[in-house]
């Protein structure tokens, strides 16, 4: 067992890990940050997406020991400092971009990464970027709307009602 230290949601944290411990397990079991969800075992669903040094990463595809010292943001670190929902989180609520909530943390993290690199994406760009995140509830319609709305675009213009 090795102690792994990193910065998660602005705090320096550490937990004991085996070599095979995935970042997703480190966050969930080691740190108790259960907002990061596990939806598959083939790195296909994206429910476990977090930011590692600012980049969206499926945390089930990374060993915790390989990202020792990194700066990680999880869904628990996405709200505004006063606890209110951030723009992207608020857009998901406003546009009913979630139902069961299980894929939602990964969707929010992936969407935030998209908007950081492409502040005004087209509908097609949103869909393409989110291809690695599976949602079984929404049919993606309202997720796409939420991301476009979070980017400040008029969703009525791009999304049929």
């Amino acid at each position: 067992m090795t102690k792994v230290t990193m910065t998660v949601n602005g705090k320096t944290v550490s937990a004991m890990t085996e070599g095979r411990t995935l970042l997703s397990s480190y966050l969930r079991e080691g740190l108790g940050l259960t907002g990061t969800h596990i939806g598959c075992d083939t790195s296909q669903c994206g429910a476990c997406t977090v930011h590692v040094d600012g980049v969206a990463v499926k945390s089930c595809s990374v060993f915790a020991q390989d990202v020792a010292g990194a700066t990680v943001t999880t869904i628990e670190g996405m709200a505004n400092a006063d606890g209110s929902l951030s723009v992207i989180q608020q857009a998901f609520q406003d546009h009913h971009g979630l139902q069961c909530g299980y894929c939602t943390p990964g969707m929010v993290m992936a969407s935030a990464a998209l908007l950081a690199s492409n502040p005004s994406p087209t509908e097609g760009e949103v869909r393409h970027y989110l291809e690695g995140n599976i949602c079984r509830c929404t049919g993606y319609h309202n997720i796409v709307k939420a991301v476009l709305a979070a980017s400040g675009q008029d969703v009525a213009a791009v999304a049929a009602e």
């Binding site: 907002g35 628990e76 609520q93 909530g101």
Partner: peptide, 11 residues
């Protein structure tokens, strides 16, 4: 949605 969007859901 508030708890689901902030990682506070309890599955």
């Amino acid at each position: 949605d508030i708890r689901f969007l902030t990682g506070k859901g309890r599955y």
